[in-house]
Computed example of a mutant assay.
Amino acid sequence: MTPLAAIVLAHADPTHVRRLIEALPDVPVFLHVDAKTADTVAEDMVRGASSQVTLCPRLPTSLASWSLVAAELVGLRTALRSTSAEHIAVLSGSDYPLVSAPRLVAELSAWAGSSWMWNQPLPYAPWGTPRHPDGGRWRVEHRFLTRRDRVVYLRDVPLRWPVRREVPAGLELRASAQWKIYARHHAELVLQIVDRHPEMVRFWRSTLVPEESFTTSVLASPTFAGSDALPPCAAHAWYMQWPEGRSDHPEWLTDDAFPALARVVAAPPAEPAEAVGTVAEKPLQRRRLFARKFSSTRSSRLLGRVDAELRTATP
């Protein structure tokens, strides 16, 4: 069985995307490039790539919309059809592994049969806003206006109907992240739920930022997932650096981020026994396997140090 496959969702910076692929030797990579990205840029992302990389059918995507879920599902279908991978990681084109590929596989061996998806029940306090102090339920309980699976904005404000709606019966809402590691059986299960419950897809298509909550919510719901329902998880496999105050996006990582990256690599490994089933407002301070966001221009020297000082360690 292939221990790990990776889905990479990219739209820019082919230099970094190539570096990311090279940092995952022997890992089958399924690359989804935003359909809005120029063909020449997409071709540059896979220039010189081996059979390690499979290009997925391209969809137009935008942040905070079902379009990103659709791209992830395309990647899952392709990866499941093409490999026997035990785990499937979903990465962005600005991610990068903090440990070597052998150590990555070794760390995931402790998670055999388990998905590593940070997720917490809603309401989740950090997802509340001054206007919506409901722990993030507003993202789902309002119907947002969409066009071609992309949320419609006016002056950077997502447009929605003012009246709240009912959440489908049996749905256990979860706060999560787009970047996650599926166990194979959960990847298969989420596609089965999508295929068997078109009404669920219709509901989620008009939510805000479904890429951060759809898959974990449906997988966490015994009504849809049965006895294989996903429990909460307090460990996160990704490191992100957030600016002070409220922000929708993590910071780009530059040279001064190296001490923090070194600390999260040196931290104790995340153990399913303590992470799975645990409800906590903040992720456990355990080892992270990936980080974001990197770029070929802002992060070049930092990536060099990550390669030379962090990713050289053996399992």
Rank of each mutant, 00 (worst) to 15 (best):
A112D: 10
E281T: 13
A273Q: 14
A38C: 10
F294W: 06
L59P: 10
A273F: 10
G75V: 06
A270W: 05
S94M: 13
P97S: 01
G48K: 07
A106E: 12
D95F: 00
W138N: 15
A187Q: 00
Q120I: 10
D228R: 15
A71W: 02
T2H: 15
V151K: 01
V53H: 03
V264Y: 05
P123M: 02
E212N: 07
V163K: 13
E43Q: 15
R165L: 12
I7F: 01
L59S: 14
R58K: 10
A10K: 02
P243Q: 04
T254I: 11
W204K: 07
L63E: 14
R298C: 11
Q192L: 06
L122G: 01
D156Y: 12
A112G: 10
V74K: 00
C233E: 01
A12Y: 12
L73W: 15
Q285H: 13
V29S: 07
A42V: 03
L145C: 09
Q120F: 07
V46P: 04
D13M: 02
A291S: 10
A220I: 05
E141A: 15
P123F: 00
E141P: 13
V17M: 03
P168G: 05
L63H: 14
R81D: 14
E172C: 13
K36M: 13
S213H: 14
A220L: 04
S67I: 07
P133W: 02
G75L: 00
L145N: 02
W116Y: 07
G304D: 13
S62G: 15
H236A: 15
P231C: 00
F294C: 07
R165E: 14
P133R: 03
R103K: 13
M200Q: 10
P130R: 10
P168Q: 04
L24C: 06
P268T: 10
A89D: 09
P210R: 08
P198L: 01
P123I: 03
R137E: 13
L219R: 00
R205S: 12
D256T: 12
L20K: 00
I21M: 02
E199F: 02
W66L: 05
H132R: 12
S84N: 13
W161L: 15
Y153K: 11
E274H: 12
S109W: 13
A177K: 11
G136S: 02
P57L: 05
L68H: 03
G170N: 01
T254F: 08
W204Q: 07
Y153H: 14
P14G: 04
S94L: 12
G245A: 07
E281C: 04
V151D: 00
P272S: 04
F144I: 02
A101N: 04
P123S: 03
L310F: 06
L145R: 11
R246G: 11
L63R: 14
E166D: 13
